[in-house]
């Protein structure tokens, strides 16, 4: 035991080399292509995005255009980053965003293929940056509770069973990164939409508009051109917040109830 602890604290890992194949695309209209880059002496403690930072510094040194990718908080909560790495959204680890992926998850000498999210409603803007405003449109269609500021009752007049509050929170943890769509073989946004529908379905505050909400959000989702759910579970497997398929089932129930008890 003591030896194990000792090891984890002092061993400095050897630095690693990688071959990167990265999708480059000048703008939304341009035809893209894969470019190959060699990267040397990367620390295993480096995050995936920091590895891309290093690559970009080298590209700038050569007066080349750096690789564009979305990122912001770099602690797994803003949902901005999202790269399709070696066939997996957010790369080879579970329950993380791309910014939380570390190079120690790869082997020295690995070839890493980096692609943008691919879906019709997520057109590529540049390189690895895609337009996810479709998600905002779905929320605008009804992903809220219609209360104006002020004039609401005291918070404790609305008791919520703890279990329900926990389920609502599980769903509400969604960061809107789009990994569910990217992972789904059908580019379906069901998990994203379900997370919001399910959150409000579990809360008394959400009941008033429940029927209208689910119908409008699903309609908007369909309209935007996302694919259909075939219950493969890729979304659940890749969701950085590990949001469960049970929320999709709940949304389906909400949908049927809204349709048949209209």
């Amino acid at each position: 035991m003591s030896l194990l602890r000792y090891r984890s604290e002092i061993i400095k890992f050897k630095e690693m080399n990688f071959t990167l194949k990265i999708w480059r695309q000048e703008n939304a209209r341009a035809k893209g292509r894969f470019e190959t880059y060699q990267l040397q002496d990367i620390s295993p403690d480096c995050s995936f995005l920091e590895m891309l930072d290093i690559l970009n510094q080298q590209l700038i040194d050569k007066f080349e255009k750096p690789v564009c990718f979305d990122h912001d908080c770099r602690e797994g909560i803003c949902g901005a980053c999202g790269l399709y790495i070696n066939g997996r959204p957010h790369g080879p680890d579970k329950g993380i965003t791309t910014c939380q992926l570390h190079m120690r998850k790869f082997k020295d000498g690995d070839t890493i293929v980096v692609e943008p999210w691919r879906a019709k409603p997520f057109p590529v803007i540049k390189d690895l940056v895609v337009d996810r405003s479709a998600f905002d449109k779905i929320i605008q269609a009804g992903g809220f509770i219609s209360v104006n500021t002020g004039g609401v009752p005291d918070a404790n007049t609305i008791p919520v069973p703890r279990k329900n509050a926990d389920i609502a929170m599980d769903a509400a943890a969604c960061i809107g990164c789009g990994a569910c769509v990217a992972a789904c073989k059908n580019a379906s946004a069901m998990l994203f939409v379900a997370a919001k529908v399910s959150q409000f379905a579990m809360l008394p505050q959400g009941q008033v508009e429940a029927k209208e909400r689910v119908l409008k959000m699903v309609q908007k989702m369909d309209e935007l051109g996302f694919g259909n759910c075939t219950n493969t579970g890729a979304c659940e497997a890749e969701c950085p917040k590990e949001i469960s398929l049970s929320h999709i089932a709940r949304m389906n129930r909400e949908y049927f109830s809204a349709t048949f008890n209209a």
């Binding site: 894969f34 399709y84 997996r88 890729a234 497997a237």
Partner: peptide, 29 residues
Amino acid sequence: VLQVGNLMARPKGYKKANYSQTSFFSKYM
């Protein structure tokens, strides 16, 4: 009909085949 919709939802596919952990048979429906 659903399948056509699904294909249209991803006009450009990935170079690297999806590696996500899903139930095996679900991918081949």
